[in-house]
Design a binder for these strands. Structure first.
Lengths: 185, 185
DNA sequence: ACAGGCATGTAAATAGTTACATGATTCG
DNA sequence: CGAATCATGTAACTATTTACATGCCTGT
């Protein structure tokens, strides 16, 4: 049985403790979103498919009058998750409109490539800030669970963004050296 | 008129010289594919839409009996491309199944996270090699056109992959230090 | 009373890939 | 001659996002 990567995101998210679709979405938004996003439109139908396949089990756990279904992973689900984790990854995709614009920046008057690099840099700086906001929670969680991987991935994301922002800065300087703001020295 | 980023890829590709859909696809595969892919299923219909909108112009230029339509950018097309280049980028998406697996690696027995990092590292090393194969062609092209951006982006991609491969290596060592191959001191 | 968060879900639209069909040309 | 490449295109499928609908609960 072939599952989509998004199915494994869900499996992974319920593997430590049972969660509702809503909680899974919230968790994804705080964690994997940066390298693997998922929307309600995927999560709820996928939960039903996984339940039908016996990889998770839903249980009604209403809070007051508000209905709520939490899903727990089954033995078969744990097996499927591990089996996936052991297969080499297949998808590695980047869709970066900034790099795309930079690639075509030759269609613009000389100095304007610099503006693209500045936008890209600002974006990564902003991303770093948002990732740093997550940090305390992730650190606390590592202390509680002893699982080093989520924090490792978070630090990796921060470092990567720092590399990217730095690269933008270096390329900006290089462009400015090559074409010194128009009439210079 | 709102165009998709893929439309701008096409506009960018025909902005320097007229090209056929087939040539555009081949170019994309050698260049932007690494941060913005496009398939025939997108390119041919999009070329017709762009032609209908007056942003490109198709001309029949058969080679022998083999029919062939090359598309040239129009003044309006150049304007649309420049206008897009000046807008700040919107999309920045990464879909990295390796990072996803690493994130959930806690579901695996201790030592196995290392295997994921090794797979990721191998992938980036391989990517570096493929990018280096493109290098000579890109350098030669920069000499011919004087456009520094495509090569800049290519070097950026290589450096990024090098950073990534190095990070994998460092994280691998860290895991091995933390859990020295089972039963230690 | 109302805003905001909790909770589940679906319909419609958009995006994108894959596979196929067709046929010419070139090179070994 | 056959394989690879040039060349155009479409149909079917899969994935994914967005927007909406519904309704309860908590805090101000």
């Amino acid at each position: 049985m072939e599952l989509s990567p998004t199915a494994y995101v869900i499996l992974g998210m319920v593997s430590r403790e049972p969660r509702s679709g809503y909680e899974i979405k919230a968790l994804v938004d705080r964690t994997t979103r940066f390298f693997w996003a998922a929307s309600y439109g995927q999560i709820y139908p996928e939960l039903k498919r996984l339940a039908a396949a016996g990889l998770v089990e839903g249980r009604d756990e209403p809070r007051g009058e508000r209905r709520r279904t939490v899903y727990a992973i089954t033995a078969a689900g744990t097996e499927a998750l591990r089996e996936w984790l052991r297969r080499p990854p297949e998808t590695y995709e980047v869709r970066d409109e900034g790099l795309l614009k930079l690639f075509f920046a030759g269609a613009l008057p000389a100095a304007e490539g610099v503006a693209i690099l500045r936008d890209m840099r600002a974006h990564h700086l902003d991303l770093i800030e948002r990732l740093r906001e997550i940090e305390p929670k992730a650190e606390e969680k590592e202390d509680r669970t002893g699982d080093p991987y989520p924090l490792m991935v978070l630090y990796g994301g921060i470092e990567l963004s720092e590399w990217f922002a730095d690269w933008c800065e270096r390329m900006e300087s290089r462009l400015l050296e090559a074409a010194p703001t128009e009439r210079s020295n």
